[in-house]
Structures are given as C-alpha cells and as structure tokens.
C-alpha cells in the first residue's frame, strides 16, 4: 500500500504508523459529557467503503496526515496534512 505524504510525496505504507479514524481530530470540550467522550475515545465506525483515518509519517517527516481511502477497493483517494484539516 502506498500513501502520499503531502510533504514528502508518495511512500510505502511501512513508513507510516496508523492511529485510526479522523474522529481523533475532534476532541470534545471537557464538559461535553460522558456520551461525547465515550464516542471520542472508544467508539468507531467500521465502514465498508470510504473512510478517513490518521497516519503518522514516523519514518519520514513526522507529519500527521488524514488519508481518505476505500476499505473495499483499497483505493487511496487523497491525503491532507492534519494541521490543515484541523485549522
């Protein structure tokens, strides 16, 4: 599998480590309540199809990126810097 790092270009997936769904970007307010925090920390969808998840270019530039890919076809649709998505 190959992932494009917006900074370094297209690289083999073994340069990256995986964190999971981009839900991680949306940290709730400390007062958001139990359900919101449960969602954020524990609950994840398991989509057949398009998904957006977080990868860390650990063997490269150290960028966190959001990768859009398809879990059925394995197509990697796009990648963006997490810093830009989060802004």
């Amino acid at each position: 599998m190959r992932i494009t790092c917006p900074i370094c270009g297209e690289r083999d997936s073994r340069e990256f480590s995986y964190r999971g769904a981009d839900v991680a970007l949306h940290r709730p307010d400390p007062e958001a309540g139990e359900a919101a925090w449960d969602d954020y920390v524990h609950l994840r969808d398991n989509p057949a199809g398009e998904t957006r998840d977080m990868w860390y270019h650990e063997g490269g530039c150290g960028a966190w990126i959001v990768v859009t890919r398809n879990t059925v076809t394995h197509e990697v649709i796009g990648s963006e810097l997490a810093a830009e998505v989060a802004r």
């Binding site: 970007l25 960028a63 989060a86």
Partner: peptide, 18 residues
C-alpha cells in the same frame, strides 16, 4: 520516547495547529 514524540506531534498538528 517515540510514543511521546508522536503524541506531541499529534497534539500540535492535529489538535492545536494554531
């Protein structure tokens, strides 16, 4: 060491890029 570096990178890039 590696885990903390990754964590700080996550916080500064994905949670508080500002």
């Amino acid at each position: 060491a590696g885990q903390v570096m990754k964590h700080l990178d996550f916080v500064t890039q994905a949670l508080h890029p500002e």
